[in-house]
């Protein structure tokens, strides 16, 4: 069996809802059936075959070839299998993902990994705002699983994040870990202004001090935190993060946001 491939026929002006393309939704479907699947493009339904050139026969392994940033909800609700996007992806990548692995070679739009609860989402490029966050109306963002971004992340990464791990290889925008409820978020580069605003619990691990912290964070001093050894060791096979264990377990710690229970922690490795 070979991977089920979808190649975008031409550049598109309207956004396309790609949520029907998950391994579990395409299971047991023939290529001709998949080609007839209706997809929302803007406010119209278009047959999948009219938008994509299809090949292959293994829906457990889906490859999407596209340079468009308008393919939304790729891997939305996926529970198993793998989706490999060769190119870019639009908004809501891996929205409510519950398992499997999703890999994108390029950049992705807003709200990637939004409300996901399990599985692995890897973005080789950069991600937009609300990475692993919560969509409007939801009270919890990411609830489990792992998101790895090799590039930068936009504003409000980890907004209302409840559980799981987000690893950002580059920089994070403003309000990183805002309203965070729990979980662990790592930024290797710089985090922007108002980092941790309204954070309730959870851990934000940084390489250097953020551009600014809310006034409602208190300096907790320098500490050796044993769990960091376990955490960084668990990343030893994670490209881009495999050397974090060398930084040791001594960190400068801030606690906050004191306006919201104050049990969140921002940790910056000591030089």
């Amino acid at each position: 069996m070979s991977a089920l491939k979808l190649r975008l026929r031409q550049s598109i002006h309207q956004r396309i809802d790609m949520s029907p393309f998950t391994p579990q939704r395409l299971a047991d479907m023939r290529l001709t059936e998949i080609a007839r699947l209706p997809l929302w493009q803007g406010n119209q339904k278009v047959a999948c075959g009219d938008l994509f050139v299809l090949s292959g026969d293994d829906p457990q392994d889906i490859v999407i070839q596209s340079d468009s940033d308008r393919l939304d909800e790729i891997g939305s609700g996926m529970t198993d299998g793998s989706i490999h996007v060769e190119g870019c992806a639009g908004a809501y990548l891996g929205y409510t993902m519950r398992g499997g692995s999703l890999f994108v070679t390029g950049d992705v739009g807003i709200a990637a990994g939004c409300n996901m609860s399990a599985g692995t989402l890897t973005i080789a490029g950069s991600a937009g705002d609300l990475l692993g966050g919560a969509i409007t109306g939801e009270r919890q963002g990411m609830r489990g699983g792992k998101i790895i971004v090799k590039g930068n992340a936009g504003d409000r990464a980890g907004d209302q994040m409840r559980r799981g791990t987000i690893l950002i290889g580059g920089n994070a925008g403003d309000y990183c870990a805002s309203r965070m409820i729990a979980g662990t978020l790592v930024v290797r580069g710089e985090a922007g202004a108002k980092t941790g605003l309204a954070m309730r619990r959870g851990t934000l691990l940084l390489s250097r001090e953020p551009a600014s912290l809310p006034a409602s964070f208190n300096d907790n001093g320098k500490h050796n935190l044993n769990f960091l050894t376990l955490f960084t060791r668990s990343l030893q096979n994670q490209p881009g993060f495999s050397d974090l264990w060398k930084r040791g377990s001594r960190v400068q710690r801030w606690l906050g946001d004191l306006g919201y229970d104050g049990k969140g922690e921002i940790l910056v490795w000591c030089e």
Partner: peptide, 9 residues
């Protein structure tokens, strides 16, 4: 109440 849970690996 000040304890913190961490899920690692």
């Amino acid at each position: 109440g000040y304890q913190i849970a961490k899920q690692i690996a």
